[in-house]
Each structure stands twice: as C-alpha cells, then as structure tokens.
C-alpha cells in the first residue's frame, strides 16, 4: 500500500477527482488550469508548513506543477492517469521537493516524533474572542507551529489545515494509517506544549 497511488481505500473527506488527471493527460483545454486552481493554495500552504519560507514555498509549488504537468502529459499513460490518486500524488511530489530543498540547506537538529510520550492533550485555544484577541492568537499559533519539528508541522498542516483524510495523508507521507494516528496526536501535543510555554493556554 505504501507507495501505491492507484486504488486503495476511498477517502471520506476528499473531493472526487472527476477525471482531472485524465483531462490533463488528454490536454483538454483548461484542464491544467483547473488543476492549478484547485490545488495551488493547498500545496503552497503545505510547502510553507514544511519550509517556513514564502519564497521557497512558491518555488517548490512551481516546480511541483511543472513536474506534474510533465508526468501527466508525457510520462503516464491514460490508464495510469485514470487510476491515479491525484491529490495525495501532488502532495507527495510537493513534499519530496520540500525535503530535497531542506536537505540542501542547513540541517536542523530536530527530534523525531516518536521520542515524545502520549498523555492527555490538555485544553486548547478556542471559543469566542474579540478581533484583537483572535489576531494575537493567530500570531501565537503560527509561531508555536514554526518551532515544531518539521514532521509535526507537516502533519498538522495536512490534517487540520487541508483536512486531508488519514488514508490520503498515509499515501502522501508513506506510512500506515495506524502509525499516522499516533503521530498526529503527538504533533498536536507538541503544538499544545509550545503554546503553553508561551503562556497561551486558554481554558475552553
């Protein structure tokens, strides 16, 4: 299952791909534009989640789109396009480019997620606030997220910003759904700890 882009479990959260990959393969007018329109924001946000840099994120998305176009129109045959899980495939492409880029930059010291233990998550930011409070909260949340290990940032982006299903995330990052559930929870916990250290533990 790990690296299979074809078939697999059906996603419950994700919109159907309605043959978009095939349309791009056949070079139908406007098909690639539709693909860009549908995914550019998500991919950009994801790349930014990993790289924490707007310039790099933009370059990665551009590169990913060029590669996607090349693969769909030239490298894959129609059958492969028809069975392709387009969304996780695009995210995976973006992810690989992000990680390449990170690798070529300075290596950050980051603890892998499995070093943290599970326990209760604790209360989290939420509820009704004034505009000012919300803006501060947003800023704090962004900062807290930025100091998390890249793996945690990535999973939080995919799961909570992109609302991707566990099935699709598993395909994107190449892991099992069961392992993923643990990782997502630990990522949340790290985020929660990061916020607490900054004194933003709002009681719900």
């Amino acid at each position: 299952m790990k690296n299979s882009w074809t078939g697999g479990e059906s996603a419950c959260l994700d919109s159907p791909e309605d043959g978009l990959a095939v349309a791009v393969h056949r070079r139908e007018a406007g098909a690639f534009e539709r693909l860009v329109e549908r995914y550019e924001s998500s991919l950009y946000n994801y790349a930014h989640g990993i790289l924490q840099n707007t310039f790099d994120a933009q370059e990665v998305v551009q590169d990913a789109m060029v590669r996607a176009h090349r693969a769909l129109t030239r490298q894959y045959d129609e059958e492969r396009c028809a069975t392709l899980a387009l969304r996780p495939w695009l995210f995976r492409t973006t992810r690989n480019l992000c990680l390449n880029r990170r690798r070529s930059k300075t290596r950050e010291l980051e603890r892998p997620l499995h070093e943290f233990d599970d326990n209760r998550l604790g209360p989290f930011v939420g509820g009704a606030h004034s505009d000012l409070e919300r803006r501060e909260e947003t800023e704090l949340l962004r900062r807290a997220l930025s100091i998390l290990p890249v793996e945690a940032r990535e999973l939080i982006t995919l799961r909570f910003m992109e609302e991707m299903s566990y099935g699709d995330i598993a395909k994107t990052v190449g892991t099992s759904e069961a392992a993923l559930r643990g990782k997502v929870f630990r990522s949340l916990k790290l985020l929660r700890d990061a916020l607490e250290k900054k004194g933003v533990a709002h009681a719900v």
Partner: peptide, 22 residues
C-alpha cells in the same frame, strides 16, 4: 473537545499564495 477546538483554530492560520503565483 480540545482536538475539535484545535482543528478549528489551526485551519484559520492556513496561508494563501501570492496572487502572482497563479
């Protein structure tokens, strides 16, 4: 409850690409 609240907060901080990218 915390996870539900968190999911909502985190979703609001997603960022958008610059318009020039499209």
């Amino acid at each position: 409850n915390d996870v539900v609240a968190l999911a909502r907060s985190v979703r609001s901080i997603a960022i958008k690409p610059p318009k020039s990218m499209r």
